[in-house]
Design a protein around this nucleic acid. Sequence first.
RNA 1: GCCGCGUUCGUCUAGGGGUCUAGGACGCCGCCCUUUCACGGCGGUAGCACGGGUUCGAAUCCCGUACGCGGUACCA
Length: 550
Amino acid sequence: MNPDVRVRFAPSPTGLLHIGGLRTALYNYLFARHHGGTFVLRIEDTDQARYVDEAEQDILKSLAWAGLHPDEGPAVISTDEKTSDADATGGEAKNISRIDFDTDIENGQGAMDGEMDYKGTFGPYHQSRRRSRYSMHAQQLVDSGHAYYAYDTVEEIEHMRERLRTPENPNPKYDAQTRMQMRNSLTLSEQDLQELVEEGAEYVVRLKVPQGETVPFEDMVRGPVSFETDELDDQVLLKADGMPTYHLANVVDDHEMKISHVIRGEEWLSSAPKHILLYRFLGWEPPVMAHLPLIMSPSGGKLSKRKAEEEGIPVNVRDYRRDRYERDAVINFLTLLGWSPGDDRELLTLEEITREFSIGRVGKSGAIFDFKKLLWFNEHYMRQRDEGELAEELMALIRERGLPGKESLSEKEQALASDKDFLAGMVRLLKERVSRLPEFLEAGGFFFEAPAQFDEKAVKKGWKEDTPARITRYRDQIAGLDDAAFRADELKRILTEMVEAEGVGFGKLMMPLRVAVTGAGSGPDLFGTLELLGRDEVTGRLDAALQKLG
RNA sequence: GCCGCGUUCGUCUAGGGGUCUAGGACGCCGCCCUUUCACGGCGGUAGCACGGGUUCGAAUCCCGUACGCGGUACCA
């Protein structure tokens, strides 16, 4: 147990939580829990232009759904959604403190104005509320000669790039070579500078990257990595709107929040040297870094929203929540996308994973999102669950979105949809045949309503001239059964007796019976289905089918 | 273009010089079970990117090539 281990998940509220983001959060969580450390959630809302209002709530809810409860960070505000609080390791909730930030409310962002609930004492956990710290440290960097003010407009920078752009160098940098040709505190005269300040000209603060240095560091996933400073550009640290860029904010916050390990996606690897430089110039000890391999789309490349959707993969965690994926399945699947316990085990609980997790066993190469495998995990965990529980979820699902392909529910459907025993019966019959909860409704539509049409192929194959007579005889037999006798085994007994007496195969009667009652040529156990439907419903459907099919 | 990172069955991976004629899982195919379809059981298919080294011996170490991915913003 190492209480000094402090990690953070630091999403930007520019959109709904991405499934790849969830994995990053998961690995941070696992690392923290494994070491008995602290899992911090920090909101990196420094990009005003891309801020999405609902994003933060979505992040909070998605993490809660996944069972990854931060020890520190913004508290979940609305609790309208059913979430499982079962934290596998029973991570005790730390005290919730109500903090009032007088100096940091300078940039109120609507609902985030004023007081806010945070867990933990290193807050505020919104970067937009920590502005004064960034400008203070930016100033410190300027004073120590490691950063400078730049007054170039975006147009001027673009002109510089255009001027210098060649086929060999398509993206000229603002660096040691070019900065002396630009308008900044390194090139402008004292007087010009003074004037600019007086007229309140917009400026940014840029990192003054030293020349000819090698920045080596040890990555927990990749081992030794190094970059040349000549390849880096003079990264903007403080934007013209006064907000810090990710690079500054992330370094300042990680230091102030005593983050010991930075575990993030590989897309950050190339900016790691800039961060190392910042730590050095600020006189701080950098945290240990770990860059996780990316999750890839089946067609290659980062699993982007567009790509994923083209390939039928849900990307937003919200999609998984909405379609009632099993939490354990998603976690199990995501865990194994880049990590393995080192042996043949694949079905692992959060508790087991937490116990055994180590960054050392994280792979180095990108992992393609194998949707079919996720489905396999989902089936596994779903089938393990209690039928009554699944029935209740189905009930909620129907209440939320009705039945597939239906505008509204009839009175009868309404009644069935709120009959837990009926739904549990459906679950029992369909459990082994569906991959996701909503599929119960798709595969079991006939439980709610008699078939409007009959599968053509099945009719052609099973409905012969002598069929109606046989169906009628069976119908009449079971119509005489009282409620207690209308049971699967009895219904089967009767049918068996009948086909044996007639000297024909079982399917001769079973098949058309299935078509008549369910409309399809295949499906769940027929006799269980008949029992669940009940005598009156079954005989009614048989009468209707006899009429329609002749 | 430049920089960085990576490369074991279609996919996720085990493997860290000999025990590898490379193991598991998903997928796919076949067989069995069976009232259909599933589930389940059994079996099968398929891989060390390529080329050089090092070594008695390389999937494992080194170099190069190819390919892939990421970065190259006043986005994160």
